[in-house]
Each structure stands twice: as structure tokens, then as C-alpha cells.
């Protein structure tokens, strides 16, 4: 599956902040690491802020700080702020959807949608931070 760029950037930004909840980062600092424009990232941070996952700190040294619960917020919670991952309904108009074959295909595709949602809904920000740390350590160990 492919995530929209906004969803991906939102996950990267929130992982940066959740990994060190006491730290504040500017959109420029986050954007520099992930190759995102300040303008795009500012929009994303605004949406994350409205959802209560980050808060904006004003003034010198200001930026964004994580304000959610990293052990209870899942990737699905973040992604659904930016895109709709709900399974297509059976009645949704598409070629052949009214036929028995169309309904059979819908059942199979529904399985895939369910698995996608279940996987994204089972990984918390805390778990993804741990996975990222593990991957970072592996990469460092491979370096000569």
C-alpha cells in the first residue's frame, strides 16, 4: 500500500517529536530531515495540532512539541487525519459491482482493507519509535 505524502510526513514529524517529548522542533528542522517544504509541513502541523497531538510553542526557541499519548496513538489515528482508509462499501458504484462476481471480488478486497487497517491500528507511535531506533542501530552496525 502507498500512503499519501501528507500522511507520511505527518508520521515522520510526529515520530520526531514523540521520540523526545521535551524537545521543540521547528517545521524547518523537521522539513530539512525529510525533504519537505516549510509550507506543506506547516499545514500538516496545523492539522496535528487540531487533533491534540502537537502543540505550538511561540517565541524564541519555539516550535512544535508532542502533546499526545505515544502509547495509545496509532498510525491509523494519524493517517485518518489526512486520508480515508475506510473500506469501500458494497453498494459503491463501480463497474460490475452489482454482479455476483463484483460482490465476490469486493469480499476479497475487503480482506485486504481489513488487514491494512488492523496493521496500522496496531502500531503505536511508541512502537514505531522503538522500531526506528532498532533500524537506526542496525544501520549503524553495518557501517564500516
Amino acid at each position: 500500500m502507498r500512503l499519501q505524502i501528507s500522511s507520511q510526513l505527518a508520521i515522520f514529524a510526529i515520530i520526531e517529536l514523540a521520540a523526545h517529548p521535551e524537545r521543540q522542533l521547528t517545521v524547518g528542522e523537521i522539513g530539512a530531515k525529510y525533504g519537505a517544504s516549510n509550507h506543506h509541513l506547516a499545514k500538516i502541523m496545523h492539522i496535528l495540532g487540531r487533533a491534540g497531538l502537537v502543540r505550538s510553542i511561540r517565541g524564541v526557541g519555539g516550535g512544535y512539541q508532542f502533546s499526545g499519548n505515544a502509547r495509545r496513538t496509532t498510525l491509523l489515528d494519524v493517517i485518518e487525519l489526512f486520508e480515508d482508509l475506510s473500506p469501500a462499501s458494497v453498494g459503491q458504484a463501480s463497474s460490475g459491482s452489482g454482479t455476483a462476481e463484483g460482490r465476490a471480488l469486493h469480499l476479497v478486497l475487503g480482506e485486504i482493507d481489513d488487514a491494512t487497517r488492523a496493521t496500522l491500528g496496531s502500531i503505536t507511535l511508541d512502537t514505531l519509535c522503538a522500531l526506528a531506533a532498532r533500524e537506526g542501530a542496525r544501520a549503524a552496525a553495518r557501517e564500516p
Binding site: 502509547r71 488492523a118 491500528g121 503505536t124 512502537t127 532498532r134
Partner: peptide
């Protein structure tokens, strides 16, 4: 179970993958 949130988050947090 996919919708059994607490144990799912626990086992995932302990590093278990699909």
C-alpha cells in the same frame, strides 16, 4: 483479534510483527 486493542498494542509494543 484485530479489534482487541489492548493486547494487540501490548504485543506490538514488545516487538512482535506479523
Amino acid at each position: 483479534a484485530k479489534d482487541n486493542r489492548l493486547p494487540m498494542l501490548f504485543f506490538r509494543g514488545e516487538g512482535m510483527m506479523a
